[in-house]
Design a protein around this nucleic acid. Structure first.
Lengths: 215, 215
DNA sequence: CGGGCGATTGATTGCCTTCAAACGTGGTGG
DNA sequence: CCACCACGTTTGAAGGCAATCAATCGCCCG
């Protein structure tokens, strides 16, 4: 439903600018690439979900982002990956050799431009995330997360979470317990419904918006 | 002391790749550019210090980064600035028309490459900052900040902070009081000395390193 | 039916924020 | 030259929120 089968095994950089690659399947929790590894490919999600991760010096993991069908990830500036990527659920991913992107960027200004834009978008996302983590409480973080995720998957009021509470917790810098408690609290306030733990129904979008913006 | 007068009014993008601009002086707390404003120039700090800021929906400010002499800032991907820049102290800044960077990127792959690298470096910094804010306490945040700042200014054990406690607080997502208390505590532990509130002497680098890495 | 994992709920602790007051310093005007 | 004021900083006391520790629940799968 999220991605039509017609999507070819390519990464689209704009008009007349497609890079051909190969499709590959990863099982749940499989590593797609690891931090410090040579960045041989760039990736696009076809189906399923992917998480990109970095680890703190003390071993805690921080989930930088979740990547949904259509999203491109693993595009590095240097020659090594700066983060790890894992399959949140079983997923199909298109791999395109990074040398193709490199070549395209050297020959076509538009490709270079596109590369820059993707990196810039990641930068803005990272900054947005910093703002959310900076001075927001658990309720606001979870509300922000749900709203943002709902936007990206375009499933209307219904959100199917592919990730566990632990994943959400490591993304929002909370504990599993706090995420769970917060979702329960939102349900108690009738802002959402939780038919199952992975299925969220947004009952009151405005309530979530209000929460998100709260001090 | 930080920057020799010999530095010309240019922004250096690598070998044979300098963009000419003009120098300008800003007084303490003066706005250099504002969020959403057209990004007409890119900037380099000559002397003094600059902060880049974004505001939360609720009005709180988040200092994304401090820029010291030699640092380039205000390089945007889109046509508008995504953050505000202000002078932390009175400072000299070089302004280069963004159209020159645009032109250089179109004509020379190395310039485009440099642009990409700068953005990528900002992305990594933003992610590092997320990691620090994510699961670290006040002591670790302040220790990280001091170590990082000391590295960048290369003043040996001596750190001259150009910014106020409020600036540090808004960078580390703490309150002024907590920053002050934490610095006092570090002094009590003999990790640092505080001859004046803006002058920090690192007494035990290893103690700070240890703190920084703590859970 | 049993086992294991993820999720939920409860009780307690600890850290940071908030509110409040005092301190020191630099600048200004008398 | 000194008194005064403003602002940034420091320190103290109390409260709130999320982390931690701990137990139970529910579900999927063997």
């Amino acid at each position: 439903m999220t991605t039509p089968q017609t999507s070819a095994d390519i990464i689209d950089l704009g008009p007349d600018l497609c890079l051909r690659g190969t499709r590959m399947r990863f099982e749940r929790n499989a590593e797609i690439f690891g931090e410090e590894e040579p960045a041989e490919y760039i990736y696009r999600v076809v189906s399923g979900a992917v998480r990109t991760i970095r680890f703190s010096p003390d071993g805690r993991r921080q989930i930088l982002a979740f990547h949904m069908p259509g999203d491109v990830f693993g595009v590095e500036i240097g020659d090594a990956h700066s983060c790890t990527a894992e399959a949140v659920s079983a997923c199909d991913v298109v791999l395109v050799r990074r040398s193709l992107l490199q070549k395209a960027a050297n020959e076509d200004v538009r490709a270079a431009r596109r590369w820059l834009e993707m990196t810039g978008q990641n930068l803005l996302s990272a900054q947005d995330h910093t703002l959310i983590l900076g001075h927001k409480g658990a309720g606001e973080r979870v509300a922000s997360f749900l709203l943002r995720f709902a936007e990206r998957t375009a499933g209307g009021q219904h959100i199917d979470l592919p990730m566990s509470r632990a994943d959400i917790a490591d993304h929002l810098c909370l504990t599993i317990e706090t995420v769970s408690r917060t979702l329960s609290e939102l349900e108690r306030q009738c802002a959402i419904a939780l038919p199952t733990s992975r299925h969220v129904v947004m009952r009151s979008r405005s309530a979530l918006m209000q929460l998100q913006a709260a001090a």
